[in-house]
Design a protein around this nucleic acid. Sequence first.
DNA 1: TTATTTATTTTGATTACTCAAAGTACATGG
DNA 2: CCATGTACTTTGAGTAATCAAAATAAATAA
Lengths: 238, 238
Amino acid sequence: MASRTIENYLKQLWLEQQDTRGKYVPMGKLAALVGVTAGTATTMVKAIADSGLAKYAPRAGVRLTKAGEQLALHVLRRHRLLELFLVEVLGIDWSDAHGEAEELEHVISETVLARIDSLLGHPSVDPHGDPIPSSAGKFETLELCSLAELNTGNATVIERIVDQSSEFLRFAQSSGLVPRAQVVIEHTNPQAGAISARPAGKEPVMLSMVAAAKFLVRPCNARRGKRRNRRPVPPVSP
Amino acid sequence: MASRTIENYLKQLWLEQQDTRGKYVPMGKLAALVGVTAGTATTMVKAIADSGLAKYAPRAGVRLTKAGEQLALHVLRRHRLLELFLVEVLGIDWSDAHGEAEELEHVISETVLARIDSLLGHPSVDPHGDPIPSSAGKFETLELCSLAELNTGNATVIERIVDQSSEFLRFAQSSGLVPRAQVVIEHTNPQAGAISARPAGKEPVMLSMVAAAKFLVRPCNARRGKRRNRRPVPPVSP
DNA sequence: TTATTTATTTTGATTACTCAAAGTACATGG
DNA sequence: CCATGTACTTTGAGTAATCAAAATAAATAA
Ligand SMILES: [Mn+2]
Ligand SMILES: [Mn+2]
Ligand SMILES: [Mn+2]
Ligand SMILES: [Mn+2]
């Protein structure tokens, strides 16, 4: 069994290598994500590679093997099911669930996880709209675009929020910008780099393009003029 | 914050020193309970003593200080609330709950614990009938006697079971000898060192005195003739 | 191309926990 | 009062994870 330290490395690696088909994750990046020095990451990655869970290319970076991906997906499944459980069953605040799950994901047994899963009705997304991998390690992502890509007058439903920081989540919740909320784009101002979005039954909210890009929505009908190459897979978060 | 290793030492120490007012717990005993060699226990206990959580007397043993007791009681509270939660909310098997809680007790946050506590309605005993310390670290024990101390014809209610091993718990459950179950003593045979107990609506069960002593009951009216000094506090289990 | 900056790796040390085995204290029983 | 066995402590060594700082490689700028 992988230690909790290694589980964390694997999960961060998976999240990071998701969008970069085939590219290696640089050591510095991984170190920052896990929260250790680069030297520590190098040492750990070599150990992980020795156990067959990753491929390590000195001075280039690291990438999970199939085995490593499977293990990472199981950790991710535990994490996201736990997040949903904490929010839905225990009433833990949305913005705190992530931190709690970060610890629990390493100690929960398969038995308990299975009970949680069935208690929640085998859900497919966590409280942030992030997809939950199946127990077989299968993982599906919807094609979504973000609030930043919509024009004035468009109406959509928020499906997913790709920022786990409690501050941002608290802001999102207090504005009414939560998964499953209907939203209308009131104004777009490309010059100012900002838009105004109004969640159904709430006050309009000003969002910078950076902030707007964190809200993934559906349907994604009307595209802004300049867009040509839609991003293939949205950035993924724990 | 105490590491999970130290939390385990503290909890075992507390359970062990409960009934022995003032006596020191010998190193060998503690080592066996925690599952390490005697040398390891000695080293750890010296560290624990240095941090003020226990008093260590070489060649005599170790005893928790007030501070150590408080910490131990918080771990015990987490353990027992989790056991009840696993059984009541998640439907985990009675006999598995202990092992699961043994891990979870070290990672659950105060916030999550408080939610669990209120979800369960601030319970006072865990699934084995063991009392749950209050969040302030207060701890109450009922005066109970055991099935082994009753005479033929006596009827009582099982309040508590003082053996956490899954095998014993599975046996107890399948026999109907669970907390809150009504039981009648059908026969006592001091010569054979065995009794026969019949749970309401179930078949009678043969129990050795050792096994019978693991079921604590109430009311405790009729005492066997030979008993004079009733045990002050019953043995405690995690 | 050479020099400088930046990213990465290596080295040496530290902390927490553990065991095996050697050494020491002590109760006990002759 | 010595001899011995048992319980306990000490010692030496190992594993997992970490950091700070020195060494190295690669990318970039001059
Ligand atoms: Mn984690
Ligand atoms: Mn999430
Ligand atoms: Mn434990
Ligand atoms: Mn218990």
